[in-house]
């Protein structure tokens, strides 16, 4: 029987085609999972109390979409502030200057030590402490000033609260990434004449990204949901929009399902973004870049056809 071997060498033995080990446990487990899944889907689909038609009605309601837009804006802006602040705080933490690293430590300690909800409410009510906000020399003349109530809108308060809080958490993530880079890298950079800052910017931080991105993706996905706390300070993001609707028509579960669907859709989009970001920053770390889901599916099909 002709062999489908890799070479044309007639002396080469045929590829081994052994009878695989029987794995009844695997099949039984798969069957159980399948039955349970079908049961759940069936129950959810046929239970009239879910009122799926109501969910369908409100899924693209303009108030929901407007709320979704605000949620996305809050997430993007708060994460931008958080990441920028996080990088700054992390570099400060690793500074040889004790005052600089101490200041950073203090910030992180305070903003991680208090609940984010409390911080949001605090920024919302800041006008009670500082009715006029001025920018200028400390203990000296002010260059610019404004009325706190008009300057700090609920949206601004939400951005400040979420962003400044996120900065403290991102600082630890970035610091973890930085210390994960081998010390030899900075040795080499310094021996070539690069300063600490140049080394951080061109050699350490780019390589730290590999360790920073997965937890940052986590934080962004989390921020998407944490932004719903802004509902407590009257920002009509997605959750608050849903709450306003069901407070009138009493379809609580249905509107919450609508909000959840949008949260999960946005989270899934973030998965894709994170994959490509990791791929970009992972270049050079292994011989080939990671396989995309499509490539992996094709390889899985190949294995299935040729019998593993």
């Amino acid at each position: 029987m002709p062999s489908s071997g890799v070479t044309d060498d007639p002396g080469r033995p045929d590829d081994i085609r052994a009878v695989p080990v029987r794995r009844p446990g695997r099949w039984i487990a798969a069957a159980i999972v399948l039955v349970v899944a079908v049961a759940i889907v069936h129950s959810v689909a046929t239970n009239p109390r879910f009122e799926w038609h109501v969910v369908g009605d409100y899924l693209f309601d303009h108030r929901i979409i407007a709320g979704l837009r605000l949620t996305i804006e809050l997430t993007v802006i708060a994460m931008a502030i958080g990441i920028a602040l996080g990088v700054l705080l992390a570099v400060m933490r690793l500074s040889p200057n004790p005052l600089v690293s101490g200041a950073s430590w203090l910030y992180i300690w305070f903003f991680r030590g208090t609940p984010v909800l409390v911080q949001l409410l605090f920024w919302y009510n800041i006008a009670a402490l500082y009715p006029k906000i001025a920018l200028g020399v400390p203990f000296g003349p002010a260059v610019v000033h404004a009325n706190a109530n008009t300057l700090i809108t609920p949206f601004t308060a939400a951005i400040l609260g979420l962003g400044l809080n996120e900065g403290a958490y991102m600082a630890e993530i970035v610091r973890a990434g930085i210390i994960s880079v081998d010390a030899g890298q900075s040795d080499a950079a310094h021996s070539l004449g690069m300063t600490r800052l140049q080394t951080m910017r061109r050699i350490v931080l780019p390589q730290a990204m590999r360790v920073i991105i997965p937890p940052t993706g986590n934080e962004t996905i989390s921020m998407l949901k944490t932004s719903s706390l802004a509902s407590t300070i009257v920002v009509t993001e997605l959750l608050y929009a849903a709450q306003l609707i069901y407070s009138v028509n009493f379809k609580t579960i249905q509107l919450l399902i609508v909000a959840s669907v949008w949260y999960i859709v946005c989270t899934s989009v973030l998965y894709v973004g994170q994959f490509y970001l990791e791929r970009h920053y992972g270049r050079g770390s292994s011989r080939e870049p990671a396989a995309t889901p499509l490539q992996r599916a094709r390889m899985g099909l190949f294995d299935l056809r040729h019998g593993f």
Binding site: A188, P206, Q207, Y281, G284, S285
Partner: peptide
């Protein structure tokens, strides 16, 4: 300087 473990910039 040349190091025992090369220390090339991996990225």
């Amino acid at each position: 300087m040349v190091f025992q473990h090369f220390n090339l910039f991996g990225h």
